[in-house]
Design a protein around this nucleic acid. Structure first.
Lengths: 209, 209
DNA sequence: GCAAATTTTGACCGATTGGACAAACGTTAG
DNA sequence: CTAACGTTTGTCCAATCGGTCAAAATTTGC
């Protein structure tokens, strides 16, 4: 099952990192098919044949990037724990996801690109690892509902809505900034978003009598 | 300012529609750069030179598609009206947006693709028409808050969250279906989503004591 | 029915693309 | 020092791409 990690020299490790960093930048803004090896090579400061010495095919770069992404991407959900106050747990899950949108927007866009195009390369992972994890956490949330700690609703769609609202600030960043304008679209937008989302998820919109 | 609509024969109108329909399918799943004229031509059942007789450049197809999209895309928000009960207004805005995600997923994905790649072709429209419309509706919502009809919060981020949660069911459809599995991922998922979103936006997650 | 206008097609072109390859250049261990 | 190994580069290739063009086929107006 486990593929043995190939032995690599120091230079190989460094250069591969350099390439992956450059490829993340290029892929996340142009999509897989919209990106060229030349673009990535230039962004990494090396020639195309040299890049191809470290990654034999364009797909290999993308695949490596994807595998790394998925681990870190699901980390916040994995941390969602049964211990502690449910509302607090959900609040900090939302906060963690929003922080990821703020700190790793390229990774978010890379993922969004892949899903948008029908997830051709990561479908098995969605139906396997991801579904298992979500089902597991949905069960935890269901427990909280049964215990009367949070309102009864659909845990799966709750998780979707957290993903959607937080990743929106990475994936649709240009739209968010365009609509907010130069004043409110600055660095403060993530704190505004955090405040808003907390209120939305906890209290909803109904006026407090 | 207004460009006169070119006179077109019956065949031109029909074929142009055929091409736009095919291009919507292709562009929305592969992105602009990921789509080829050949693909669109084949999907439209004609040869490439024949397609290029109706649209001189690949960009022209995309541009035409975009212009049409934006009108229908913003229609639900335009309908958000100051008359009627605020909570009911917002509820039906959410419902309308979710119906669009269900009925026009390709249009949603086309738009998402464009924004993801930095909105190179529609940036002026985002900063102009879209921002104006959102600011206008945000003012309406602010009025509701001042009148105590809905809870005080940030109207812009409220609109973002409605966009994000509803469009998620079109843009991330494959992920939603993969996670829900064959049972719950069927046609009923939109009704489940509608029920969940209504509850989320109105009442939030706090237990009803 | 026929000439003019429109539509369709096959052949073609230059540019770009992903990738191969051998030769040149560096580095490292004995 | 030097032979083996690792790295980099210039050159090249076949496939695909967006788009052109002239000629053929079809439709339309009279």
């Amino acid at each position: 099952m486990e593929v043995p990690a190939p032995r690599r020299t120091r230079i190989q490790q460094e250069k591969r990192e350099l390439i992956l960093e450059a490829a993340l930048e290029v892929f996340s803004t142009n999509g897989f098919r919209g990106s060229t090896i030349d673009q990535i090579a230039e962004a990494a400061g090396m020639s195309k044949p040299n890049l191809l010495y470290y990654f034999r095919r364009k797909e290999d770069i993308h695949e490596t990037l994807m595998q790394r992404l998925l681990d870190t991407w699901l980390a916040p959900l994995r941390e969602l724990d049964d211990i502690g106050d449910p509302l607090t747990e959900l609040r900090s899950y939302i906060r963690r996801k929003l922080e990821m949108a703020r700190d790793f927007p390229r990774e978010s866009r890379l993922f969004a690109n892949e899903i948008l195009q029908g997830a051709p390369r990561i479908m098995p992972m969605l139906e396997g690892e991801l579904k298992t994890l979500v089902d597991e956490k949905a069960a935890v949330i269901k427990g909280w509902m049964r215990a009367g700690k949070i309102a009864r609703t659909d845990p799966w769609h709750l998780i979707f809505s957290i993903w959607a609202t937080t990743q929106h600030y990475a994936d649709f960043d240009v739209q968010v900034r365009a609509v907010l304008g130069p004043n409110r679209g600055g660095d403060g937008r993530f704190e505004d978003a955090a405040r808003f989302l907390e209120q939305l998820f906890i209290d909803g919109l109904k006026p407090k009598t």
